[in-house]
Amino acid sequence: MKKLPKVGSLKGLDKSVMWKALYAILMAIVCVGFYWSTTQTNYIWHWNRLPKYFYYTDTINVKAEIEGEVATITRSRGEAVVIVKGPDGTDHYTIPGEDLRVKEGDTLYMGDVIGVYQEGKIGLLTDGLIITIEVSIVSILLGIMLGLFTGLARISTNPCVKGLAITYIEIIRGTPLLVQIMIWYFVLGTIINNLLAKAGLFQIPELWFGVASLAIFAGAYVAEIVRAGIQSIDRGQMEAARSLGMPKSMAMRKIILPQAFKRILPPLAGQFISLIKDSSLLGVIAIRELTKATREAVTTSLMPYELWFLCGIMYLVITFALSMFVQYLEKRTAEA
């Protein structure tokens, strides 16, 4: 015979269902309220125009760059090679596909269309998303390395090393990120590129100054997270490791840091999520990350509602994926 569930468990189940139903009702009210408020603004939604900001097909016109006559047209492997001979020399043009607008013997002038083909291109938002992800990943990796060394220096017994770490942390944490980005781009970037130009070396793109500002900003916060994580481990473990003959560096690497890593994962995840969102400030130095790309798209399309909502959703997807990855790491480290 099957056992009947206990009355207490039924009551708990009923309460859980009730609260979930209340949550669903509240979310439905929010959605309906938002939809009603948009209807009061006389705004016409154009969701069907959004796909082109991710990927679109562009029509490319191949135009003549010299005056002359079409000498030969060679077709092979789905493309045509057109050779134009003129008084100033010979030029050739490759046109994918079969849409040619000329034939052999035609006379061409500069700007005449020789052929047309279709080419797929990534949209403005996709381009901005890629740059945001690349900048965030590089900044996070550099921030982790910088924060780890600075956090260890923060608890060092060497007064010089400790003083330098404290100075760096306090300066970075005590000034806004936007100001730091401006200093890196307009002050340090100008000085560095001027010195490189005098030495006859290449110029550093503004993207790397943005990455440097984000990495140094994140490194200061990671350093404090690492310091707090290390100091949360009982001192007796370090003393026990030293009593067994372990050098301090080996004890820190094999005993203290693995335990501290489990404790600092949640605050590290929060810091990196904030860093991804802070990357939107790089638009002030002409880096076309996701927010700047959205702003440009809004300017040309006059669709602020759809594009800004889409921008928010794309940031949410990135941060949610990072959050899920950190939760996975937490489970793996807890099982280890």
Score class of each variant (00 low, 15 high):
I225L: 07
I318Q: 03
A336R: 15
V84L: 10
L201N: 10
G200R: 03
T167K: 09
I233F: 02
Q259G: 05
V284F: 13
I137L: 15
L177M: 08
I166F: 07
I155N: 13
A153L: 12
I73C: 08
R77L: 14
V7Y: 08
M110Q: 13
D14F: 15
A297Q: 00
G200N: 10
L282S: 00
I73M: 10
M246I: 13
V284W: 08
V113C: 06
T57H: 05
Q259A: 10
T175L: 12
K11W: 13
R173H: 09
G147Q: 00
L13F: 15
P258D: 01
S136T: 14
I171A: 09
T38Y: 10
W45E: 14
G68P: 00
A223K: 00
L268M: 11
N194G: 11
H92R: 15
G312W: 08
A153E: 06
G120Y: 07
L152K: 09
W184D: 02
T333S: 13
K292P: 09
E79M: 08
A241N: 04
K331Y: 04
V7G: 10
L164E: 04
K248F: 03
T59I: 12
M324W: 11
T57C: 01
G68T: 03
R49T: 08
A220D: 00
K85W: 08
I216Y: 11
M324V: 13
K85N: 12
L310D: 00
N194C: 06
I25E: 09
L4F: 14
E134R: 14
L50S: 06
L214H: 05
